[in-house]
Design a protein around this nucleic acid. Structure first.
Length: 448
DNA sequence: CGTGTTTGACCAGCGC
DNA sequence: GCGCTGGTCAAACACG
C-alpha cells in the first residue's frame, strides 16, 4: 500500500517539513523534519559535493581521466556505506520501538493498578523508583548500543540518537509531571472495578482508517480469519480475524472497506495481546492498546454523556448505525471518539482525506469523513492536570482532553509515524476483505 | 496431511 | 414475542 501516492498534505514537502538546504560548505542537505510541537525528527541525508570526492578533485581534465570502472567501484562503495548506515538506523529504530512499548506497558499497568486505592501510595513510590531505574537503563542501553555499533561517526546515527533522546526526555518529563503529588495522573482518572475495567477493556475498540488496495493492512501480527458477514449499510463484506500468535490471545480485528470510498480500508482492533509482540507489530499494537487504555481510563462516562455533545450525527462504517461520533474541537479534524455503547471506539484516520486547515464544522458535510477516532498514544502532555486534579473536570472533559492530547501530543506524531511505517513496511496477507459484491460465493447471510 | 479459508447455522442484544 | 443485526462457531473445502 502506498499512503503517499495521492496528492495530499502529507506529500507536500512544505507541510511535511522537508527542506532542501545548502550549508556554508556548499553541501546539499535534505532535511526530513518530522515536525512536532516540541521537537523535530530530523533525518539528514548529506550528499557530498564534488569537492568532497577525491575522485572529483582537480581539473575537469583529471576527472575525465577517471575510468568508468573506478566510478562504479566508488559508487558501489558509497552504496555499501549507505546500506550499513541504514542497517544501523534500523537497529536503533527497533530499540526505540522496543523501549517505547515497554514504557507503554508500564503505564498501562499503572493505569490498571489505579483502581486499587490501597496500593496507590505504595505503588506511587514504587513506580517512581521503577521509572528512574527504567530511565537509567535506557541511558545505559542507548550509550551501550551506540558504542557497540560504533555509530558515533555517522550523522544518521547521531540524528537517530537525538530523536531517541527527544522522545525519551519528553516521555520522562511527562511522566514526572504526572507523578507530581498535586497533579497525579492517577487522581483524575475515575476508578472502576477491576473486573469491569477488564471487561470494558476487552470491549474497547481502536479503529484505523488507511488507504490501501491490499485486502488487509499488515500490522506485524498473525491473524486467522474466522468469519465474514455483510454489514448493514455497506456493500463490502466485513471480515473477522483473531490473533493466532499465541493460543488464547483475545485480540480480534475486523476489516472492512469503506462504503463511500472503497480504497479506504477500515481495521478495527479489540482486546489486548496476551503475548510478546515482534518489533514489527509493536508500533501498531502499542498504540492501539494505549489508546484503549486512555479512552477507558476516562470511564467512558456513558454513551449518553458523549451523545450529549455529539456534533456528528452520521453513522460510520461501523455496524453500530445508531452510534454517533464526537468531533472534538481541540483535535482539529483528526481524532474523534465514537461512543457507541457498549463499544467505545477511538479512531485514527490515516487516509489524509482531511485538510488540516479545514473548519471542523465543514467536515460534517464531507462524505469521506467517517473517520473514527483512534489512536493510541501513551501520554497526555496537553492535559491540564492541575485542573483535573482539582476536580473541575468531569469525565466528559477528560475524554475531550485525552482526545485533544492524542492529536496534539508530539509523541503522537512519533507514534503515528511508527504506525505508518509498520503498515507500509508490511507483507501482504494471504487473504482478506475485498469487495466481494460481485462474488456471491463469498457473500454470507445476505438477506438474512 | 496440516493449515487456513469459506460459509451456513446459531446465538445474543436490541428495538418495536 | 418477533425480526433485524452483529458476532461467533464449526464443518466443509481449498491449497501447498
Amino acid at each position: 500500500m502506498d499512503f503517499f501516492a495521492e496528492k495530499n498534505d502529507i506529500c507536500d514537502a512544505s507541510n511535511a517539513g522537508i527542506k532542501k538546504e545548502t550549508n556554508q560548505e556548499g553541501n546539499h542537505q535534505l532535511n526530513l523534519g518530522l515536525r512536532t510541537t516540541t521537537h523535530d525528527l530530523n533525518l539528514l541525508t548529506t550528499k557530498p559535493t564534488p569537492s568532497d570526492s577525491p575522485t572529483n578533485s582537480g581539473s575537469p581534465l583529471v576527472r575525465r581521466r577517471t575510468s568508468s570502472s573506478d566510478e562504479f567501484v566508488e559508487l558501489k562503495a558509497e552504496l555499501d556505506r549507505m546500506n550499513r548506515e541504514n542497517e544501523r538506523l534500523r537497529a536503533i529504530l527497533d530499540q526505540i520501538n522496543d523501549k517505547y512499548y515497554s514504557l507503554k506497558m508500564h503505564v498501562i499497568s499503572l493505569l490498571q493498578h489505579q483502581s486499587n486505592p490501597n496500593s496507590e501510595t505504595k505503588s506511587d513510590g514504587h513506580n517512581k523508583m521503577v521509572m528512574e531505574e527504567e530511565k537509567q537503563k535506557m541511558m545505559d542501553d542507548k550509550s551501550g548500543s551506540c558504542s557497540h555499533q560504533d555509530c558515533s561517526s555517522s550523522p544518521f546515527c547521531t540524528e537517530a540518537v537525538s530523536v531517541a533522546n527527544n522522545l525519551q526526555e519528553n516521555s520522562m518529563r511527562e511522566r514526572e509531571e504526572r507523578e507530581s503529588p498535586e497533579k497525579s495522573f492517577r487522581e483524575w482518572i475515575p476508578s472502576k472495578e477491576p473486573e469491569a475495567a477488564e471487561a470494558t477493556m476487552k470491549k474497547a475498540r481502536v479503529s484505523v482508517r488507511a488507504r490501501s488496495e491490499a485486502p488487509m493492512i499488515s500490522d506485524g501480527c498473525q491473524w486467522r480469519k474466522y468469519g465474514q458477514k455483510m454489514a448493514k449499510g455497506n456493500p463490502c463484506p466485513r471480515a473477522y480475524y483473531r490473533c493466532t500468535m499465541a493460543v488464547g490471545c483475545p485480540v480480534r480485528k475486523q476489516v472492512q472497506r469503506c462504503a463511500e470510498d472503497r480504497s479506504v480500508l477500515i481495521t478495527t482492533y479489540e482486546g489486548q495481546h496476551s503475548h510478546p509482540l515482534p518489533p514489527a507489530a509493536t508500533a501498531m499494537a502499542s498504540t492501539t492498546s494505549a489508546a484503549a487504555s486512555m479512552l477507558l481510563s476516562g470511564s467512558m462516562p456513558s454513551a449518553d454523556g458523549l451523545h450529549n455533545q455529539t456534533v456528528m450525527g452520521r453513522s460510520d462504517h461501523h455496524h453500530h448505525q445508531q452510534q454517533q461520533q464526537q468531533l472534538l474541537p481541540y483535535s482539529q479534524n483528526l481524532a474523534t471518539i465514537s461512543a457507541s455503547a457498549p463499544f467505545p471506539t477511538i479512531t485514527l484516520d490515516l487516509t489524509n482525506n482531511i485538510n488540516s486547515t479545514q473548519n471542523p464544522s465543514s467536515l460534517l458535510h464531507t462524505p469521506q469523513n467517517m473517520f473514527l477516532s483512534h489512536q493510541p498514544q501513551l501520554f497526555f502532555p496537553a492535559v491540564d492536570h492541575s485542573r483535573i486534579a482539582a476536580g473541575s473536570s468531569s469525565s466528559q472533559e477528560f475524554v475531550n482532553a485525552a482526545t485533544a492530547a492524542i492529536a496534539a501530543d508530539p509523541n503522537f506524531s512519533a507514534a503515528l509515524a511508527a504506525a505508518i511505517s509498520s503498515i507500509i513496511g508490511g507483507a501482504q496477507p494471504k487473504n482478506g476483505v475485498e469487495d466481494h459484491t460481485s462474488s456471491p460465493k463469498n457473500m454470507r447471510d445476505v438477506g438474512k
